[in-house]
Design a protein around this nucleic acid. Structure first.
Lengths: 125, 125
DNA sequence: ACAATCTTGTCAGGTGGCTAACAATTAATC
DNA sequence: GATTAATTGTTAGCCACCTGACAAGATTGT
């Protein structure tokens, strides 16, 4: 994934943020952390990088002075339109010719496993 | 995994290195990078941390002066014996009660997928 | 034997993840 | 209405991963 993105000088999480803003429109950082499941601090550094590169803007929210709204810039949409979808690419390579039933089984096993792990974590907290 | 290891002040890769040295005995760094599939540079910083903590030693190899042999110290084996196996813990939580056939299918699908991805990477190189 | 090449480990610099602590602002409570 | 709580984003400090460049030592070619 990173190797696909490297020519564009983007890390994979930077790509995810760009995707969100390109498709869903402006969002405040709190929303983005919820959707991408990363910590506020992590997103803070990533937005810093994207702002520095001029791909997104960070605007104050009038309703709540604590919050900042992220919006993709013209340069950002430009870049976005030229980048191939790395997820698409990976899944086609990885799962080409796999029996659909087996693939479904694998997905079920894994999603159940993650669910159990999440439950376990919240329990012991 | 990291949450299990945090009380012992160990990162997960530090744990893997310790495991290797505790079970397989002394190894040079090249071997460790091969077995753990990490870059030389990555291992270099990790061995630095473990040496600083006094858990492993870094000795010059007489046969080849470039190489350095890693060996677990007494303090290292001590710590090792007190740490619970985080992998064991995770797999039992994650896959408890899963149908063995389904689990086998999932494993097969995933190992084939990684194989395809590895092949793809070496092809385009 | 000597030069060119390969290998091993380290360092510098970058990405991305976390926790903990902080300032600013908003929401709750009394 | 004033004090206390909670929320939002930033910063600092850590771990782990990578690439690229380097020095030192080992191999290979001629």
């Amino acid at each position: 994934m990173d190797s696909v993105l490297r020519p564009y000088d983007l890390g994979h999480t930077q790509w995810y943020v760009l995707q969100l803003l390109a498709i869903n429109g402006p969002l405040n950082q709190r929303e983005v952390t919820r959707l991408l499941e990363v910590e506020r601090a992590t997103l803070s550094t990533i937005t810093g990088v994207l702002v520095r590169k001029g791909l997104i803007e960070q605007l104050a929210d009038d309703a709540d002075q604590r919050q900042k709204v992220l919006r993709i810039t013209a340069a950002g949409t430009d870049l976005w339109s030229t980048i191939p979808d790395p997820i698409e690419l990976i899944t086609t390579v990885a799962f080409a010719g796999v029996d659909p039933t087996d693939l479904a089984t694998a997905q079920r096993v894994l999603s159940e496993a993650t669910e159990r792990l999440v439950n376990h974590r919240t329990e012991i907290k």
